[in-house]
Each structure stands twice: as C-alpha cells, then as structure tokens.
Amino acid sequence: MSDATTPVLELRNVSKVYTIRQGLFAERKSLRAIDDVSLKVERGGVLGLVGESGCGKSTLAKILLGLETPTTGEVLIDGEPVGAQDRRKLARRIQPIFQDPYSSLNPRKSIADIISLPLRVHGIGDAASQDKAVREILDIVGLPARVMNSYPSQMSGGQRQRVAIARALIMKPEIVICDEPTSALDVSVQSQILNLLGELRREFGLTYLFISHNLAVVEHLATRVAVMYLGRIVEEASVAGLFDHARHPYSQALLESVLTPDPALGVPDTQLGAAYPNPIAPPSGCHFHPRCPKALPQCSSVAPRPLTTADGRIECHLFDEEKAEPATA
C-alpha cells in the first residue's frame, strides 16, 4: 500500500505521558514527554530533530524503535500502523545508532558476534552466509575483516561507532534512528562518521531521523528539521527554510547559540533569560513564553495552534495574524 508519495515514516498525534511519583506517599504527577507530535519523513530524507535536553527527543526515538509505546496517537511506516506489527518485524525496518559507542557494544562479545546478532535473532541465513554478510558490511563501513575476532575494548571510539553502524545496517533497514551519533566522538573522528552516514544514505537510499544538539551538524546532514520544546514540535521546516529564515523565537535563539569558529564574533547574547522549565509543571499557554524575548500578552494564557507555512509548520502567536491556514495534520 506504499507508493512514492507515502512518507516512509509518519507520526500522527503521538503523545507519551509518564506517571511519576516522588516518594511513597507523594501525589502522582504526569509528565508529558511527547505532546501531540505529528511528523512525516520522506523516503531517503533526513529529518533533523533538535532541542535541549529533556525536550523529548530521546523518548521519541524510543517510541520509533518500539522500546516504548505511545500513550495516544500512532506511528506509521510506509503507511502501515506500527501497532499492528510486532517488535521483531519493526526491528527489520528501523534500527538505531546510539550516542555512546562505549556503551552501545557489549564488551563481552566479539565484533562478529555483535554485528551478526540481528541475523541470528531473525534466523536469516546459515552460519556461512552470516559470516559473509558480516564481512561485506565491515567493508562497507570501512573496517578490515580481521576485526571480526576483536573485542570492543580493543577499538577506538570511531571504530566502535563504525561497528554500531554495521550492526544497524546488516538487516538492510529502511530507517535509521541516529541519536546523537557523533557527540561522544572527537572532532576529527566525528567528521569521518558524518561522511560515512552521508555516503550510506546515498548508497542504500536510507532514511534518517537524526537527533542532535549540535545544530551545525544537523544543518550539514539534514533535509528537514523539526525543533522540539517541552515535548512539542514548535517549528518544522526544510533545512534552508529553518537555518536561513528561522521564524519561531526559540528556533532563532537556538541558531544564535551556535558558536561558529569565527574569532571576530564574540559570545552571542541569546536573551533566553530563565532556565529550561520543569517538564512536570510546564508553563501555561505557550510553554516557551517565560523565556521568549518576543512574548505577547496572550502567550501566557493561550496555547498557540499549529499553523502550516509555505515550508512546514509553526506554533507561535506571532504568526496568528498571517494568512496561515490551521494545520490539518
């Protein structure tokens, strides 16, 4: 039921609410980690997901990997709701690459064991063909075949991240969730991994959800960008649209915070006065209003509606007056 126009990955009004209780007799409180998120990712695209820690980026990744179930809403892959598929089926289509290559590889297993695990779990091929597949994928990620008998502790951070990429790709998934894949790596290694991810996408037509706090890296790799704040997508646009003409005050603040290596510029003043709010007690109205330099009187009481723009979507009262149609997503 998929055709060229069906997005390979779609989220429809996905919310995730956690109930937490601090202490035995404390009152139960709900934490909206993801709040009514709708997103579409085109086949072969890279959706960059940016936002501060605690904004719900990682929870979103877990939902897509089937590690968490959404409280409401649904996730569709190729137009099929994921709920109908079980975790094993999902695993063949979506695979993760995690942030910390020192934590994402089991230190007690050899590299060959780590990479071939997906094949063994899903019973794909016999020992000989699995061995061949591991050799092929190692070559693709730029590692020599003789690392097969090595252990993670014998490898550098960059080499480990290549192993993690090999494990993610060996079942030929359509979608790869990259959760801060380079933030634990040194600068010189980071660029190698970014280049590799770019090459692999072109070569295999992969679709990425690229989660990062490094906006320069997102700008470099992504085709579309979604900005998340306290569980909501506050702006979504193409890379050019967002990085050249950010509209939401929060997107603008994020972009101003990027420190390019230009000694002529000083440290920017982002005017984001208050600290990141407590997600258990989010501010009323627009969640961003206490930090917003352009807040209007209604921002503290009325939550802004999602509006479609020429290039994507935005949630901000500043654009209410514009002739933007309410979103239909």
């Binding site: 877990k62 990997l65 590690l67 975790r87 995690f98 942030q99 934590s103 590889l105 997906p118």
Partner: peptide, 11 residues
C-alpha cells in the same frame, strides 16, 4: 547500557 537497548531494538 545502550547495548541492551540495541538488543531490544534488534528484536
């Protein structure tokens, strides 16, 4: 550890 999450994501 993330390798446990990875194993779960593998199925």
């Amino acid at each position: 550890r993330e390798y446990v999450a990875a194993a779960r994501a593998i199925g």
